[in-house]
């Protein structure tokens, strides 16, 4: 009887210890499960953050490259159109100070100086205009875009079909500048890379969404090759689209032209 009691007791204790060990095991398993899930989630978050960081770096680099190119272009323009001409002016002005100068020569040099300074004036106006067209600031986006199209038509390289309908004041002025730059970049690409002959630009506001629709019949490019895109200044357009909270769609293939649709929401205040 007593022996049975002790064996029962032992059995009970064994079961109790096993049960506690099992509970402990389960508890550890659950803790480990949470621990590894946490690690995995943190790893995923880290990867995502890294990806975002590298994208931003790429963007920054593209922006810096564009900025440097722009500076180089301005420097070149200043040098070609202004500095070299002012050198000539300085030379001729120096000749004017000569004591043995005849009236005829003085007239000749004076005329020369006048002519050159006029060209320099014109050039500096043009450079300033290229940097920031006064039309945009004074009259708004629509006249500025029309002026841009006119200038492009003057090159006689393209036949341009355009329809622009943006009421003045529809877009805030800083957004107007972004939109203007986007169109300017598209036209620059058309001039530099596309070999296109026909361009089409539609700009209209429908249900508070401003749509900018650009097409050309040029040689196009491979949308999936990011290097090519960066070279074409597409990153700048993408950046500006992001700043405008807009959506950008680029459809292009080698030898089949480019179609770009930019939609931005108009905020009614």
């Amino acid at each position: 009887m007593e022996q049975q009691f002790f064996s029962n007791q032992n059995q009970f204790l064994t079961i109790l210890v096993i049960a506690i060990a099992l509970l402990l095991f389960m508890a550890t398993a659950i803790v480990l499960f949470f621990y590894f899930s946490r690690r995995k989630i943190i790893q995923t978050q880290l990867e995502k953050a890294n990806l975002e960081l590298s994208y931003q770096k790429e963007l920054l680099q593209a922006t810096l490259i564009t900025q440097e190119e722009e500076r180089a272009r301005i420097a070149q323009d200043l040098h070609d159109a202004i500095s070299s001409k002012l050198n000539v002016v300085s030379l001729q002005a120096n000749l004017l100070t000569d004591e043995n100068l005849t009236v005829e020569d003085a007239h000749k040099f004076g005329n020369g100086i006048l002519k050159i300074t006029n060209t320099v004036l014109e050039s500096s106006r043009k450079i300033a205009h290229d940097l920031l067209p006064p039309t945009l600031e004074k009259f708004g986006l629509q006249p500025a875009l029309e002026e841009l199209i006119e200038e492009l038509e003057e090159t006689k390289r393209f036949s341009i079909d355009s329809e622009i309908n943006i009421p003045h004041g529809l877009v805030p002025s800083h957004d107007e500048l972004h939109l203007f730059r986007v169109v300017q970049e598209l036209f620059n690409n058309a001039i530099k890379h596309s070999e296109a002959t026909k361009l089409k630009l539609l700009c209209k506001n429908e249900n508070n969404v401003l749509t900018l629709h650009y097409t050309d019949n040029g040689k196009g490019f491979n949308v999936n090759q990011s290097n090519e895109k960066l070279g074409l200044g597409m990153s700048g357009i993408e950046n500006r689209t992001q700043l405008l909270n807009g959506a950008l769609s680029v459809v292009s293939q080698p030898d089949s032209g480019v179609e770009i649709i930019l939609k931005i929401p108009i905020m009614n205040e």
Binding site: I20, L24, A27, V31
Partner: peptide, 9 residues
């Protein structure tokens, strides 16, 4: 978690 779960028994 571990202590309370296993000590309950």
């Amino acid at each position: 978690f571990v202590y309370l779960l296993s000590s309950t028994l």
